[in-house]
Amino acid sequence: TTYKLILNGKTLKGETTTEAVDAETAERVFKEYAKKNGVDGEWTYDDATKTFTSTE
C-alpha cells in the first residue's frame, strides 16, 4: 500500500510517499524521515486517503 506524507515544517515543506504493509509501519518511516529533516510537528492521519500530515 502506498502512503503519503505532507510536511508543513517551518524550514521544510513538501511531500513524499512510501510503500508499507500498514499505516503503523508507514508512520514509523515518516516520523524517522521528518526527524532526519529537522521537522518536529503535530501529526494527523487520514485513512481514506492514506495520508499523514506533520505541521509545525
Rank of each mutant, 00 (worst) to 15 (best):
K35E: 09
K4R: 13
G41S: 05
N8Q: 10
A23C: 14
A48Q: 11
K13A: 08
D46R: 03
F52S: 00
E32P: 01
V21L: 13
L5H: 02
K31N: 04
S54I: 15
D46C: 09
W43V: 03
G41D: 04
R28L: 10
G9W: 15
K50D: 01
N8Y: 12
T2P: 04
T17K: 07
T16M: 15
K50E: 02
I6N: 03
D46I: 04
N37D: 03
K31A: 05
D40P: 05
T25D: 08
T55L: 07
F30S: 00
D46Q: 04
V29M: 11
E42D: 12
A34I: 05
T49Q: 06
F30E: 00
T55D: 08
T1M: 11
L5F: 08
G14S: 14
E15C: 15
T44E: 10
Y33Q: 02
K35Y: 10
A26Q: 00
D46N: 10
W43L: 08
T11W: 14
L7A: 02
T44N: 08
K50T: 03
T44S: 13
L12I: 13
A48K: 12
E24R: 11
K31P: 00
G14D: 12
K35F: 12
S54A: 15
T18F: 14
V21I: 13
D47F: 09
A48R: 11
A34Y: 02
L12E: 06
Y33W: 13
T18W: 09
T51K: 02
V29L: 11
K4E: 02
E19A: 08
K10P: 10
T49L: 07
K35R: 13
I6A: 03
E56T: 07
T11D: 10
N8H: 10
D40L: 12
E42N: 11
V21N: 12
A34S: 06
E56A: 07
W43D: 00
K4N: 05
A48C: 10
K50C: 05
E19V: 15
T18R: 04
K31S: 04
V39C: 08
G9K: 03
Y45C: 01
K10G: 07
E32A: 13
G9Q: 04
A48I: 11
V21A: 13
L12S: 08
W43A: 01
Y45E: 01
D40A: 11
E42M: 13
E27I: 08
T51F: 01
E56S: 06
L7P: 00
T16L: 15
S54P: 03
T55A: 06
E32I: 09
R28A: 12
I6E: 03
A20Y: 02
K36F: 10
E32T: 07
D22S: 08
D47H: 11
W43R: 00
T17L: 09
S54G: 05
G14M: 15
F30K: 00
T53C: 07
T18Y: 14
N37F: 15
A48F: 10
G41I: 06
K4S: 05
I6Q: 04
V39G: 03
L12A: 09
A26K: 00
E42T: 14
D47Y: 08
T53I: 09
Y33V: 05
T49C: 04
E42H: 12
S54N: 11
K36D: 10
K50H: 11
E24N: 09
E32M: 09
A26P: 00
V39T: 04
N37E: 09
L5G: 02
G14Y: 15
L5Y: 04
T55N: 08
T11R: 10
E24M: 12
K31G: 02
E42C: 12
G14T: 15
T1D: 11
K10L: 14
E27C: 15
S54H: 08
T49E: 05
R28V: 08
K50Q: 09
E19G: 04
G9T: 09
K50M: 07
I6S: 03
S54C: 15
T44H: 11
E15V: 14
Y33A: 02
A23P: 11
Y45K: 01
L12K: 09
E27M: 14
L5E: 02
S54Q: 07
F30M: 02
E42L: 13
N8P: 03
S54T: 15
T16E: 05
T1E: 11
T55Q: 07
Y33H: 04
T44W: 07
V39I: 13
A48Y: 10
E15H: 10
A48L: 11
E19T: 14
K36T: 10
K4C: 08
D46P: 01
D40Y: 14
T25K: 05
T44Q: 09
T25Y: 06
D47A: 14
Y3A: 01
K4G: 03
G38N: 09
T44M: 09
T49K: 06
K35W: 11
T51Q: 03
D40T: 11
G41V: 05
F52M: 01
T1R: 10
G41K: 02
E19I: 15
G14F: 15
T18M: 13
G14N: 11
E27G: 08
N8W: 13
V39N: 04
D47R: 09
D47C: 08
D40H: 13
N37K: 13
E56H: 06
A20W: 02
G14K: 14
T16K: 09
A20T: 05
A26V: 02
E27H: 12
T11K: 11
T25E: 14
A26G: 01
T11E: 11
F52I: 00
G14A: 14
Y45F: 06
K31E: 03
D22N: 10
G41P: 05
T25M: 11
N37R: 13
T18I: 15
Y33M: 04
W43K: 00
A34D: 01
D22F: 03
E32L: 10
T49A: 06
D22C: 06
K36E: 11
G14P: 04
E15G: 07
G41W: 15
E24G: 09
T49D: 04
F52N: 00
D22Y: 03
E27V: 06
G38S: 05
K10V: 13
V21Y: 12
T44Y: 09
Y3I: 02
N37H: 15
A23F: 14
V21T: 11
G41L: 08
G41M: 05
A26Y: 01
Y3L: 02
F52L: 00
A26I: 01
V29W: 14
K4W: 11
D22W: 03
E27T: 04
E56N: 05
L12R: 08
E15D: 05
K31F: 06
Y33F: 11
T53D: 01
K35I: 12
L5P: 02
K50G: 04
L5W: 05
V39R: 03
D47K: 09
E15T: 13
G14C: 15
K13R: 12
G9C: 08
N8G: 04
T53A: 05
W43S: 00
D46G: 01
T53K: 06
K4A: 04
E32W: 07
K36N: 12
A26H: 00
F52E: 00
E15F: 14
S54V: 15
T51M: 03
T51Y: 01
K13S: 10
E56P: 06
V39L: 10
K13H: 11
K10E: 08
I6C: 07
T1S: 11
D22Q: 03
D47W: 08
T49R: 06
K31H: 08
T51A: 03
T17M: 09
V29T: 10
K10A: 12
K31M: 08
N8T: 08
T16F: 15
V21W: 12
A48N: 12
E56Y: 09
D40V: 13
E19P: 04
E32V: 08
A26E: 00
K50F: 08
Y3N: 01
L5D: 02
F30C: 01
L7R: 00
G41H: 04
K36P: 01
T11C: 15
T49W: 03
A26L: 01
W43T: 02
A34E: 04
G38M: 06
T55C: 06
A23M: 13
K13Y: 13
E27D: 05
W43M: 07
T25F: 07
